[in-house]
């Protein structure tokens, strides 16, 4: 079995592992290093760890300066304060200049849990996706997180990587090769496509199992690079399965659902239903309870899949 681990934990561990391999690597944090897990890197390479204090906007721009001086910089804080508070710094300083800064934002989505809405970032994919030249990535498990960290280092330019607080099941065996930017088809199917990212990938697979029991065969896609989107694979799915359900721990507005719907609408219109947070704020609660309350469940995905199939034109 592949390892169950929070993507933030895989991220911190990976940074520590590769610290020697990349001497230009610098890691920054904003007083949350024990939560984002950049503390793992600090332990092995304290001289290349920079704490910005509780000052996210300044951190992002300092990272830009370091990158302009030849460093590869990972900056971490909670997604709310990275994509949210520092949206404009990411846009105007990092992305517009193509700076080599990797924003690794943790505690994304509802599964932050008890801290509640002020800390539950469910609009970051939409925000980050709207910025030109910024790649947006959402790993589904620990192994994919590690692959993405290295991919981000190998590919110059700014990246937003969305990581979670809670443990997720392992989907990939250690050493799995990922084709950068490509959607991975986790399960073949011809009746409907479930396009998922992050923690929702595992739930989409469970939904596909439920559907299979009813004789409905769902294709499951792991859309871990949301921008630039692998449109070819999305359109192929639209063409071959005729209906798509997107699944994300994010608002239904502008995130993965938006990206898929835009792509399909322009080239091969088929029903696209979105499973996500229905344009509302989060709240305090246990992560599992919140997922249930907001409809982020395998059951709900399966229901939407049946609805999407019923909307297919004859």
């Amino acid at each position: 079995m592949a390892e169950a681990i929070a993507t933030r934990a895989a991220y911190g561990r990976c940074l520590a592992c590769i610290s020697d391999k990349y001497p230009d690597l610098v890691v920054m944090d904003a007083d949350l290093s024990k939560s984002t897990m950049t503390a793992d890197f600090k332990k092995v390479a304290p001289e290349r760890f920079i704490n910005a204090g509780i000052a996210e906007n300044n951190m992002i721009c300092m990272a830009g300066g370091l990158a302009a001086s030849g460093k590869v910089v990972f900056v971490s804080t909670f997604a709310m304060f990275a994509a949210g508070r520092s949206y404009e710094q990411i846009l105007n300083t990092l992305a517009s200049s193509g700076l080599n800064v990797k924003v690794a934002a943790t505690h994304a989505g509802l599964t932050v849990g008890e801290d509640g809405m002020s800390h539950q970032m469910v609009t970051d994919i939409a925000l980050m996706r709207s910025i030109p030249d910024l790649r947006v990535m959402v790993p589904a498990d620990g192994v994919e997180t590690e692959a993405m960290v290295e991919e981000a280092i190998r590919t110059p330019g700014p990246v937003y990587i969305r990581l979670g607080r809670s443990k997720v099941p392992g989907l990939f065996e250690a050493g799995t090769e990922f084709e950068p930017g490509k959607i991975r088809t986790l399960r073949e199917g011809s009746n409907v496509t479930l396009a998922a990212c992050g923690i929702m990938v595992d739930l989409a697979l469970q939904a596909a199992d439920m559907l299979a029991q009813e004789g409905i065969y769902a294709r499951v896609l792991n859309v871990s690079t949301i921008k630039p989107l692998d449109k070819e694979t999305v359109l192929e799915a639209a063409h071959q399965t005729g209906a798509i359900v997107t699944c994300e721990e994010h608002s239904v507005l502008g995130g993965l659902g938006g990206a898929v719907a835009e792509t399909v609408a322009e080239s091969w219109p088929v029903p696209v239903l979105r499973v996500g947070i229905e344009d509302q704020f989060g709240q305090s609660g246990k992560p599992e309870e919140l997922l249930e309350l907001y409809g982020l469940t395998a059951h709900h995905i399966a229901e939407k899949a049946i609805k999407a199939i019923s909307l297919k034109r004859a």
Binding site: E114, D115, G116, M117, S118, H119, Q283, S284, G285, K286, E289, L290, L293
Partner: peptide, 13 residues
């Protein structure tokens, strides 16, 4: 405090 549905959200609302 901090339970689902509580008025006592994790941070003041």
């Amino acid at each position: 405090l901090r339970q689902q549905g509580s008025r006592l959200q994790g941070h003041p609302h």
